[in-house]
């Protein structure tokens, strides 16, 4: 079937099978490989993208479900080559190591700050239930999200 959706502010018209996942549409058809898939039980959150502004696991959505929606991926955050404040904060705070969970972490963090502009450490940790990282021990991710939130508040 043919679906239309907006991906990173661009209108996309694409032919999909009914059983195609949104993550597969992004990665395999649109070659937006920043969205990663790291589990098959919808828990790790590496595939997190924004669907109509809210974070969602793109491995747990049919591409067809996203028809008519606006999807933002990690590739869509930086504007004109300048890192998004949350990306910049992850860089400054050393909030990433191998980088595999990172896109999902950043997208999840962007959603958190949208609903809670000044999250506490505990609120950040609770929010990250749906994102698994094996490298960082989360500490610098938490610091990065606090810093990113502060930067966004003052932006």
């Amino acid at each position: 079937m043919e679906i239309k959706l907006t991906v990173n502010a661009q209108l996309v018209t694409v032919e999909v099978e009914a059983n195609l996942l949104l993550s597969a549409l992004l990665r395999d058809r649109l070659r937006l490989t920043g969205t990663h898939v790291a589990c098959d039980t919808s828990q790790c959150g590496a595939c997190t993208v924004l669907v109509d502004g809210a974070s969602a696991k793109s491995c747990t959505l049919l591409a067809a479900e996203a028809a008519g929606s606006s999807v933002v991926t990690i590739e869509g955050l930086a504007a004109d080559g300048a890192l998004h404040p949350m990306q910049q904060a992850f860089h400054e705070q050393h909030g990433l190591q191998c980088g595999f969970c990172t896109p999902g972490m950043v997208m999840s963090a962007v959603d958190l700050v949208a609903v809670n502009p000044d999250p506490s450490e505990a609120e950040i940790r609770a929010w990250l239930k749906g994102n698994i990282c094996r490298c960082t021990g989360y500490q610098n991710i938490v610091k990065a999200i606090r810093a990113g939130a502060a930067a966004l508040r003052s932006a």
Binding site: G34, T73, I74, E75, H91, L96, G99
Partner: peptide, 21 residues
């Protein structure tokens, strides 16, 4: 020093085997 490799990972431009076609 902040890491030189961060930018590609933060912008979704990392290149893992998963991504190679």
């Amino acid at each position: 020093l902040r890491r030189k490799e961060d930018r590609r990972f933060l912008t979704g431009r990392g290149r893992y085997v998963h991504d190679i076609v």
